[in-house]
């Protein structure tokens, strides 16, 4: 059976590589995909009866600011369609870290949120209600320490549930202002007509409203021939869909 692909996303310094190394050990090599110059690590691990291919994406605070790292991470999640996107968060700085988590969850519900450095959070007296966060985000959330090896089995169990489809969730639906929601509603049929239903139409509509030219360039490259002129006409109001 083919291994499941797990993409590791997260802000810089959240312990992504520590977790990656713990899981893959020496079974890894440095990869380079899709003609991008961004180099990152790839490796394998097994849990119970399944084999997983782990891909360490560049550490970023966002998927929207159009640095090469952010574009690479974004394009991987959208176009490579990993079986699970694992978002690694720093337990001592959740507010900042949740920005990226929300961005990923608007793209895909095939995700697990991993709150790392829980040892450090405990030391600082920070309490984290994992259940409440999971309920709000709609995907499994596990608190771990990659360095102290706390919670790793529980994390792997949740990764397995999402990878095998035992757990499924739709992309997180954040409600925006009436004006933006109206723009989204107008754009979604055009997005689906242009690129089909394989990619997350609501999220792409949002990015079009935000004027994300970099995403349009990537979409064009991946679709080969798609015509976005209709969609661009609807945009053009200079609406900013930031949140």
């Amino acid at each position: 059976m083919n291994p499941f692909t797990i993409a590791f996303a997260g802000n810089p310094n959240t312990g992504k590589s520590t977790l990656f190394n713990l899981l893959t050990g020496l079974r890894q090599h440095t990869g380079n995909w899709a003609g991008k110059t961004v180099i990152t690590a790839e490796g394998e691990f097994t849990h119970k009866n399944h084999t997983y291919r782990a891909v360490d994406l560049p550490g970023t605070y966002s998927l929207y600011s159009n640095s090469a790292d952010e574009e690479a991470a974004r394009d991987y999640i959208i176009f490579e369609e990993p079986d699970v996107t694992l978002v690694v968060l720093d337990a001592t700085s959740l507010e900042r870290n949740l920005n990226l988590a929300l961005q990923v969850l608007e793209i895909t519900g095939r995700a697990v949120i991993c709150i790392n450095l829980i040892d450090e959070a405990r030391r600082l007296g920070i309490g984290i209600n994992v259940k409440a966060i999971s309920k709000r985000l709609g995907v499994p959330v596990v608190a771990i320490s990659a360095r102290s090896k706390i919670g790793i089995d529980a994390l792997l169990d949740q990764i397995e549930r999402v990878a095998t489809g035992a757990f499924t969730a739709q992309p997180l639906r954040i409600s925006y202002s009436d004006e933006i929601e109206q723009g989204i509603a107008e754009l979604i049929p055009m997005v689906e007509q242009a690129i089909g239903t394989r990619y997350p139409a609501r999220w792409i509509a949002l990015r079009l409203l935000d004027g994300d030219d970099s995403l349009i360039t990537s979409l064009k490259a991946h679709m080969g021939r798609t015509n976005f002129s209709a969609a661009k006409e609807v945009v053009g109001h200079g609406v900013t869909a930031c949140h």
């Binding site: 605070y61 929207y64 159009n66 507010e95 900042r96 920005n99 935000d210 930031c242």
Partner: peptide
Amino acid sequence: GVLRRRLLDLG
């Protein structure tokens, strides 16, 4: 523009 986005991402 892009700088606005960056500032939002930084909090």
